[in-house]
């Protein structure tokens, strides 16, 4: 099975540690790489794409070491973060040149297909120097996809894209992930990671702070309270009943309903239905108020 594996991988520059003892396995599907600036996301992507050697540990892509192994690019497509493309070429020339560098049998049709995938057909014959930042990002993605790689690594791929382009790119990456490819992308926009990827790898200070489904990660952090917003037929009475439960650590009655702090996610979500039924209260709305990646991320940052 195609996968990207890091085992105890570290990378340092002199005394500065960029990636510290990271072990992770990334399988088929879409995985988001999340972390604040300076967390080591780009360094990790460079280790995986063979543009950096690990100082310690091991990095493999489908069992092969990427460092000094250009043949690996037959199976791996890279979309680098830096916004520098051969601006004097047209979009189609750039993608077709990449197809030829991969020695594809039919570079023209491969490049046409890749350009269609990123919806750049209408602008394909224009010079890249005339493209907007979002268009340059899309043509870079087309070049990375042109040889139909098993693994696609994208460093901040949504930079400069407008909302419609982002949605389209998300759909494209989602489809590629569903088709069995390993898609790893980094993004500093949390809602993008949340929308596109159920699986996240969170890097904080060069270390892997969390790994897996982001909602599961949030639930695992039982040491911190979980926030819920509730609306019911009788918020005041429900609040009084909830505060007597051991799983609830705080209740606040507001204009938008009840804000409830629960110390035990599982116990609270199991109990709430029985409690409202026993009290004869109709529960109208129950929302996890802090289930966004923002909340997950700030908890992880505080914990690390």
């Amino acid at each position: 099975m195609t996968s990207v594996e890091l085992r105890g991988a570290s990378r340092w520059y002199g005394s500065v540690v960029a990636v510290n003892d990271v072990t992770m396995t990334i399988g088929p599907g879409v995985t988001g790489l999340l972390g604040p600036n300076g967390a080591g996301k780009s360094t990790l992507i460079h280790l995986i794409s063979g543009f950096l050697a690990p100082s310690r540990g091991e990095v493999t892509v489908s069992g092969e070491h990427p460092w000094r192994n250009p043949d690996l690019f037959r199976r791996l497509g890279l979309v680098p973060e830096r916004d520098s493309v051969y601006a004097f070429l047209t979009g189609s020339e750039f993608v077709a040149a990449t197809a030829r560098l991969h020695r594809l049998r039919d570079p023209r049709s491969a490049s046409r297909r890749a350009i269609e995938m990123v919806e750049m057909t209408a602008a394909a014959d224009r010079k890249i120097s005339t493209y907007s930042k979002g268009m340059r990002q899309r043509i870079k993605v087309a070049a990375a996809l042109v040889h139909d790689p098993e693994v696609i690594v994208l460093d901040e791929p949504f930079n400069g894209m407008d909302p419609r382009q982002r949605l389209h790119m998300m759909d494209l990456l989602h489809a590629e992930g569903t088709a069995g490819r390993v898609i790893l992308f980094s993004s500093h926009i949390l809602e993008e990671v949340e929308r596109l990827s159920g699986t996240i790898q969170v890097l904080v200070g060069g270390r892997l702070a969390a790994s897996g489904d982001f909602r599961a990660i949030r639930r695992l952090m039982t040491a911190r309270p979980h926030m819920f917003l509730l609306r019911s037929s009788d918020d005041r009475r429900l609040g009084a009943a909830l505060i007597g439960r051991p799983s609830v650590t705080g209740v606040e009655l507001g204009t938008r309903g009840l804000s409830v702090q629960a110390s035990d996610y599982g116990a609270f979500t199991r109990e709430i239905a029985a409690l409202t039924r026993d009290e004869g209260i109709r529960l109208q709305e129950l929302l996890p108020a802090d289930e966004s990646l923002d909340a997950v991320f700030s908890y992880l940052l505080a914990a690390s």
Partner: peptide, 15 residues
């Protein structure tokens, strides 16, 4: 210098 060499090096062409 401008970083565009990455697009060339992210292919299997021998160095």
């Amino acid at each position: 210098d401008d970083g565009s060499v990455v697009h060339l090096l992210a292919t299997p062409v021998p160095r």
